[in-house]
Simulated assay, not measured.
Amino acid sequence: MQEPRELTPKEQKAIDEFEAARPGLGAIAETNILNNNITGWADIIADTPENELVAGEGFSSNSFMYRRLG
């Protein structure tokens, strides 16, 4: 169940970065942050330095290009 609370600036930045990477992912990220008791997302974001909360592109071992946060 979602926690009725305000998002922290770091949480909002993470949501904005997901939304910038692909429209629609911001809403999914927000749901996961607010369901921290199940997902742990808010804890992970709190432990991540703010300068690492950026969308980027990379390659996996199978050469598939993807966008990721961090």
Rank of each mutant, 00 (worst) to 15 (best):
M1S: 05
Q2E: 14
Q2C: 10
Q2A: 15
Q2Y: 11
E3S: 15
E3H: 15
R5N: 08
R5A: 07
E6K: 11
E6D: 09
E6A: 10
L7I: 02
L7H: 00
T8E: 01
T8C: 10
T8W: 01
T8A: 02
P9L: 08
K10H: 03
E11C: 10
E11T: 09
Q12V: 14
Q12K: 13
Q12S: 09
Q12M: 15
K13M: 14
K13S: 10
K13L: 14
K13F: 00
A14Y: 03
I15P: 07
I15W: 09
I15N: 04
E17K: 07
E17S: 01
F18Q: 04
F18N: 03
F18I: 02
E19W: 04
A20G: 05
A20D: 07
A21E: 02
R22W: 05
R22L: 06
P23C: 10
P23I: 15
P23H: 13
P23Q: 11
L25H: 09
L25P: 08
G26Q: 00
G26A: 07
G26D: 04
A27P: 01
I28C: 10
I28S: 00
A29G: 05
A29L: 05
A29M: 15
E30R: 11
E30K: 03
E30Y: 07
T31K: 12
T31C: 11
T31A: 12
N32K: 13
I33K: 05
L34D: 00
L34P: 04
L34I: 14
L34M: 15
N35S: 13
N35A: 14
N36K: 07
N36E: 06
N36W: 11
N36S: 12
N36V: 09
N36C: 11
N36H: 15
N37Q: 14
N37L: 11
I38D: 09
T39G: 05
T39K: 06
G40C: 14
G40F: 09
G40S: 12
W41V: 15
W41N: 12
W41Q: 14
W41L: 14
A42Y: 08
A42H: 05
A42F: 10
D43I: 13
I44P: 08
I45N: 02
I45V: 13
I45E: 07
A46K: 02
D47M: 13
D47G: 07
D47S: 09
D47F: 10
T48F: 00
T48P: 04
P49W: 05
P49A: 06
E50R: 07
E50Y: 01
E50G: 01
N51I: 12
N51P: 02
E52Q: 13
E52K: 15
L53W: 03
L53G: 00
L53F: 00
L53C: 00
V54K: 06
V54N: 10
V54F: 00
A55I: 02
E57P: 00
G58I: 08
G58P: 04
G58Y: 07
F59G: 01
F59H: 13
S60K: 05
S60L: 12
S61M: 09
S61Y: 07
N62Q: 14
S63D: 07
S63G: 01
S63F: 01
F64V: 05
F64L: 06
M65P: 13
Y66S: 05
Y66H: 06
R67K: 10
R67T: 03
R68D: 06
R68H: 12
L69A: 06
L69G: 02
L69P: 06
L69Y: 03
L69V: 03
G70N: 06
G70F: 04
G70W: 08
G70Y: 01
